[in-house]
């Protein structure tokens, strides 16, 4: 582990390397965070089974310090969106995301979570969870094999490594805004879209033009 932490800009004598590590605050901060990313225990569809396989003995993501899957969003750092996001489910997903404490990450696992997947054309399917919540890593595949998911998790760790304590959003003075929770109407309504919806209605003069063409 020590080698991970050693800042390249500091030369530690050979004989002291096993005892002393000189590092930057960023490095140790990121090292701590990347080695204990707790995912939320939260499965949506087929991909969730592969996620369980990653947690099981063959692929075993406890090797990355991720084995503590928390069923509660309050205790988790990472949301693995593993499966098809439906319109009926997205309000809950957004709510869960809002409840996660910072720093929080989202990994979209599989084609469905990334961009709709094979069921994209369906009337109850959201074309990608990133339409609603920000996604950090996308793992393509249907389903991604457990090794592909591990690859995605390693990518996430690499992303964490690049962050700096000075610029991360969760130490900014202003608190980050929660994402407005979608509403189930005659179809899914994103509160952010309501102005457009109203504007569209206002602009429609001819009643025989369907709005949704």
């Amino acid at each position: 582990m020590g080698d991970d932490l050693n800042g390249p800009e500091y030369q530690v004598p050979e004989e002291l390397r096993s005892h002393i590590t000189i590092t930057t605050l960023d490095r140790i901060y990121n090292w701590g965070r990347r080695s204990s990313v707790w995912p939320m225990m939260f499965g949506l569809a087929c991909c969730a089974i592969e996620m369980i396989c990653v947690a099981a003995s063959r692929y075993d993501f406890s090797r990355f310090g991720m084995e503590v899957m928390r069923p509660s969003p309050r205790q988790s750092d990472l949301m693995i969106v593993s499966g098809t996001v439906t319109k009926k489910m997205i309000p809950q997903i957004v709510r869960l995301y809002n409840q996660m404490p910072e720093p929080k990450y989202v990994l979209a696992m599989g084609a469905c979570a990334s961009g709709g997947g094979p069921f994209k054309e369906g009337y109850n399917v959201v074309s990608g969870v990133d339409k609603f919540i920000p996604v950090d890593v996308y793992v393509p595949g249907c389903p991604p094999t457990p090794q592909a998911l591990l690859n995605g998790l390693i990518k996430l760790q690499e992303k964490i490594d690049t962050q700096s304590i000075r610029t991360v959003r969760w130490y900014k003075r202003e608190a980050s805004e929660p994402i407005p929770i979608p509403i189930l109407g005659p179809d899914l309504i994103d509160p952010r879209d309501i102005p457009i919806l109203d504007a569209k209605r206002a602009s429609v003069v001819k009643p025989d033009v369907p709005e949704n063409s």
Binding site: K87, G115, G116, K120, E121, Y123, V125, V126, S127, K131, I183, L184, G185, P186, D187, L188, I189, D190, D193, I194, I196, L197, D198, K200, R201, V204, P207, P210, E211, N212
Partner: peptide
């Protein structure tokens, strides 16, 4: 991407008379 051709860039459509104001889920 099919959503790019749609007015809301999303997989949604509303009946023409729909107004979100009065809507109570």
């Amino acid at each position: 991407r099919i959503e790019e051709n749609k007015p809301f860039k999303k997989n949604v459509q509303y009946p023409p008379e729909f107004t979100p104001d009065g809507w109570i889920p």
